[in-house]
Amino acid sequence: MARKEIVKRIPGGKTLKVEVELKGNKIEKVVFSGDFFAYPPEIFEELEKSLRNVDIEEVEERIREYNEKIVLLGLSLEDVVSAIKELLEKD
């Protein structure tokens, strides 16, 4: 099991930290944290939970499913996608 993290400062916005626990090709757990705003907060937490035990290739699509369900301030869902992509691609 590998643990990785990345911190992204969104220009003109807030800061996002992504921490993942990986097992082989799957995300065991992901935690997003930072000084951003998400509405409703419970749905953002649901997004986090929905990424448990997900194949790395499916992550982007899973996150984008929440496009219509949450409003983010200080960052966008695409920022979340690119942060996690960058994290998964780095050593």
Binding site: K17, V31, S33, A38, P41
Partner: peptide, 10 residues
Amino acid sequence: IGYFQKVVDA
């Protein structure tokens, strides 16, 4: 601290 912050980082 904000709802989404990690204590150790905040």
